[in-house]
Design a protein around this nucleic acid. Structure first.
Length: 579
RNA sequence: GCCUCAGUAGCUCAGUGGAUAGAGCAUCGGACUUCUAAUCCGCAGGUCGUAGGUUCGACUCCUACCUGGGGCGCCA
């Protein structure tokens, strides 16, 4: 691209003027309040040049004019050399430009991207939505960079929390089903999870009233006893327990499938904790035999990570049952057997930072060379003005409810501006509003979600981006078939800005991939669209003076639309032809 | 207590060693007989948590402190 070409020429010039080989001066985009396109920062060469900043800048500027035919002028302000590139160069650049990203040749290994990974005892909530959007988008971004990507998840389908909803349904369900109650399966099961907690608290309170301590009451409550028995039965593969488990999990999966489809995400393979925890236990037994781990008198198995600055960590309980990390070890190994991945990315909230540090160290201790290729894509949690979402306090923002609400808002805005569109467009707009709002924030940061102020559809939003795309489609419909670029006599400032921004697209995608941040791409896309809208406002397209100008501007608009669509796909939302 | 992440406009966020720190929302004021006004233009809004340090140059890097989130379970 232009910047590379300029940068290389400057390196040559520095070598000729000052005798320093391979010196690269920083080259940036000129800030908009200054005149120019690219800015060379002169300061780093001053010691070597033994000149004032202005003199060195002028010397380099003069040399650039001579040797680089895409530069038509420069301006020196202190240590900044502002370069202006020719219209011709910008025209050639946009003509050659498309959205494809040069493949990074030395890495054709597979990226595994894990995201979502819910428990099967309650429906998805807003936190899952953020997780899904980040995981899906980063997968698409890596794919766009030429990597082979497989999207996967681990489904936490076993454990005491699953047994709670099972027990509650068995005890209080009266044989009702999602079908008989016309309830989405995950919500149906979630209702019983809540019911368990309610009944359990009631039992505990009664026992406390009878004089027991809180701690004793919690242990002795009949439901607690029964749910523990149910977990033991499950581990013993008791047929009735397993049947109930299968039946209720299937209800949940049916519900999840609906939500995933609506979110627009999918998975190449699902891993289930109920399968992988056994491999995890096996690996831990092997590690114990090889003295990588050690056993305490009570029979529990531990790993000592104090040499790495961490602490000692339990891997198996005294009774031989698995803990959380047990299955994660098994899952990772199974995934390597399945895919021989070059990289594995875990999209998991930052509350588990420590867990993943431990997991990766254990895999390393076990001697898996691929342990160093595991990466925790840690993102901040979604919080409410009142703080963390808590299911017990009923403050959880349900994923399905929220999606419905987005759809309704899109509908009412559309109807209020007298341009009704139909359900599929409302869905497209509502989802874009939701997705953009969550993705535009740096993944590492906590997101604040205020249910009262609802998600915006104006300004820096998904619908704003979609609207711009729809406007361009409208122009194209009126114009007819888009032809190839014709060279205009000169470029307007808005056209120059637009072309420069468009040509920067690939850089932005590559940066987003490197930094694992869809937010970089989301913010870039907004800037691109903002510049386009300014251009649209100031420059007649179909009504331009000359037919060649119209052809150039329509072609440019069409080009921008294709970038918008490409970027939107990487962020996981669609763009409409009308809105 | 220890570890870790974050603190930028009233609110939500950009800014990843360069110039006078930028957007959106909200407020106020303009632009629809025109290619879609979910748009555009303008006004106003800041001791970049505090104090030191490194550097030609610090919102950005280092140190300490303050405030907030998260973690430090034989929970997941």
């Amino acid at each position: 691209m232009l910047d590379k070409q300029i940068s290389q020429t400057i390196t040559t010039i520095i070598s000729e003027l000052y005798g320093a080989d391979n010196m690269v001066l920083p080259l940036e985009k000129t800030p908009k309040e200054q005149s120019g396109d690219f800015t060379v920062i002169i300061f780093p060469i001053l010691k070597l040049a033994k000149q004032k900043p202005e003199d060195a800048a002028k010397a380099i500027g003069d040399a650039l004019i001579k040797s680089c035919d895409i530069i038509e002028g420069f301006e020196v302000i202190k240590g900044f050399l502002n370069l202006r590139v020719t219209d011709q160069a910008l025209y050639e650049a946009i003509k050659k430009h498309d959205c494809s990203i040069p493949k990074i040749a030395d890495d054709d290994s597979t990226y595994l991207v894990e995201y979502s990974s819910p428990n099967t005892n309650k429906p998805l909530h807003l936190g899952h939505i953020r997780n899904n959007l980040i995981g899906y988008s980063i997968s698409k971004i890596l794919q766009a960079c030429g990597h082979r990507v497989k999207m996967i998840q681990i489904i936490n389908d076993r454990g005491i929390h699953i047994c709670k909803s099972m027990l509650a349904w068995q005890r209080f369900g009266n044989e009702e089903t999602p079908k008989s109650t016309n309830t989405k399966g995950d919500h149906f099961v979630g209702k019983y999870y809540v019911e368990y907690e309610k009944q359990y608290r009631k039992e505990v309170k009664e026992l406390v009233d009878q004089g027991l301590t809180q701690e004793a009451a919690e242990k002795q409550a009949p439901l607690h006893q029964q749910v523990q028995k149910m977990l033991r039965d499950w581990e013993k593969k008791d047929p009735d327990t397993r049947d109930l488990w299968k039946k209720m999990n299937q209800w949940v999966y049916d519900g999840f499938d609906e939500s995933y489809q609506r979110l627009g995400v999918s998975f190449d393979k699902n891993y289930y904790e109920s399968n992988t925890y056994l491999l995890g236990k096996q690996v831990i037994a092997d590690g114990l035999a090889k003295k990588i781990f050690y056993q305490k008198e009570d029979g529990s198995v531990w790993v000592d990570l104090t040499d790495e600055g961490l602490d000692e960590k339990l891997l198996l309980r005294a009774d031989g049952t698995a803990v959380y990390i047990t299955q994660d070890i098994g899952t990772a190994i199974e995934r390597y057997q399945d895919y021989q991945f070059g990289h594995m990315i875990y999209t998991v909230a930052d509350e588990q930072d420590y867990h993943f540090q431990v997991l990766f160290l254990i895999l390393k201790k076990l001697g898996y060379p691929w342990a160093k290729n595991c990466y925790h894509l840690s993102y901040g949690m979604v919080t409410l003005p009142s703080g963390k979402m808590k299911s017990r306090e009923g403050t959880v923002v349900d994923a399905d409810d929220l999606m419905n609400q987005m759809h309704q808002t899109a509908r009412s805005i559309s109807e209020s501006r007298d341009t009704p569109q139909g359900d599929s467009i409302y869905e497209m707009i509502g989802m874009a509003a939701l997705k953009y709002q969550l993705l535009r924030v740096d993944p590492r940061k906590t997101v604040l979600f205020d249910p009262e102020t609802s998600i915006d559809f104006h300004g820096k939003t998904g619908p704003f981006i979609q609207y711009t795309y729809a406007r361009i489609q409208s122009i194209i419909r009126k114009y007819g078939a888009v032809k190839s670029y014709t060279q205009p006599k000169s470029l307007h400032p808005e056209e120059r800005n637009l072309i420069k921004k468009a040509c920067d697209y690939q850089n932005q995608v590559i940066q987003a991939a490197k930094q694992k941040s869809p937010a970089l791409l989301a913010n870039y896309l907004y800037e691109l669209v903002k510049i386009y809208n300014g251009f649209y406002q100031e420059n007649p397209i179909l009504n331009a003076d000359k037919q060649e100008t119209t052809q150039f501007r329509v072609t440019l608009s069409h080009h921008i639309a294709s970038i918008i669509e490409h970027a939107a796909q990487l962020l996981g939302f669609d763009v409409p032809d009308h809105m």
